[in-house]
């Protein structure tokens, strides 16, 4: 694990721990979801769960999207990302997205699920696997991030889905995450932690001088080989009113790349279907 610039090898454990904590939080809240609960209820539950376990700062506060909001149907302005009073119903898909900072390590995760059986959603989740493989393969080949972005787009089109991460600010499929100094007071602006925003801004400034960007976008600013560091990658599929995503940290080194952790709900789910198919 040499050459992860800015990240000590033992720091990876810290990132892995906080990523697991975040997924545990999403799973715990997902298990509590009942028909009639609102997005705000879910977001609040995630926040309380994480704060109880020592989270003091956030890269961004928890988001929750229910029903067709998982595919960002009709989203025009960024405020629409924030949790609303939309109520959960049986069969509805949902996405929980949170980015806690724990002991100075940042994670940003996305958890997709649905309340009761929903075959469309199952299919989307299963098809996300190809994207996880594709992204890792092409990052290892050190292709330009813009090219990888386009390849993900093509794969989505071939699968019959639409690209919904395009709706994120700057249309990013991924962004860098880093260590953050812990302060006693950690305010946030529009849901994003000021410390993290500061880190991103610093990266953006460096990157601008050196020809790379901490935001992995479809634009020319991402036309550069993968920049070493930790990237929170979040491909987001949409299919007529149903959306699904995963989000997890990809570690990029000078000459290699790997997913930080394979012990995540979506990965385990794919492995189980493999086992089921084999048996």
């Amino acid at each position: 694990m040499s050459g992860v610039r800015g990240v000590q090898p033992d720091a990876l454990d810290g990132f892995r721990d906080v990523q697991r904590l975040a997924y545990a939080c999403a799973e715990a809240v997902a298990a509590q979801l009942r028909p009639g609960m609102t997005e705000r209820d879910a977001a609040r539950a995630m926040r309380e769960w994480a704060v109880e376990r020592g989270v003091r700062d956030w890269f961004h506060l928890p988001f929750a999207w229910f029903g067709d909001r998982t595919a960002f149907v009709g989203f025009k302005i960024p405020t629409q990302f924030f949790p609303t009073h939309r109520r959960l119903e049986a069969g509805m898909p949902f996405i929980l997205d949170l980015a806690p900072i724990h002991r100075g390590f940042t994670a940003d995760i996305g958890y997709s699920g649905c309340l009761g059986p929903n075959p469309v959603h199952d299919r989307l989740l299963a098809d996300l696997r190809d994207h996880r493989d594709l992204i890792l393969r092409e990052v290892r080949e050190r292709r330009s991030l813009q090219r990888i972005y386009e390849d993900v787009d093509r794969l989505m089109a071939r699968q019959g889905y639409t690209n919904r991460h395009r709706a994120y600010p700057f249309g990013v499929i991924a962004h860098k995450v880093d260590r953050v100094k812990e302060h006693r007071w950690s305010p946030h602006i529009a849901g994003f932690g000021t410390q993290s925003l500061r880190g991103l801004a610093k990266d953006a400034l460096h990157g601008h001088r050196e020809g790379w960007s901490p935001l992995w976008s479809p634009y020319r600013m991402s036309d550069h080989p993968p920049q070493p560091g930790l990237w929170a990658v979040e491909p987001h599929l949409g299919f007529r009113g149903t959306g699904a995503k995963f989000e997890e940290i990809l570690v990029v080194t000078e000459d290699d790349a790997f997913w930080l952790d394979d012990e995540l709900p979506h990965v385990k789910r794919w492995q189980e279907t493999d086992k089921g198919a084999a048996a």
Binding site: P119, V120, R123, R158, Q159, G160, F239, R240
Partner: peptide, 13 residues
């Protein structure tokens, strides 16, 4: 391949 993919997703819908 793409035609059968369309049919498959159409059934899911």
């Amino acid at each position: 391949e793409t035609a059968s993919r369309t049919a498959e997703l159409a059934r899911l819908l």
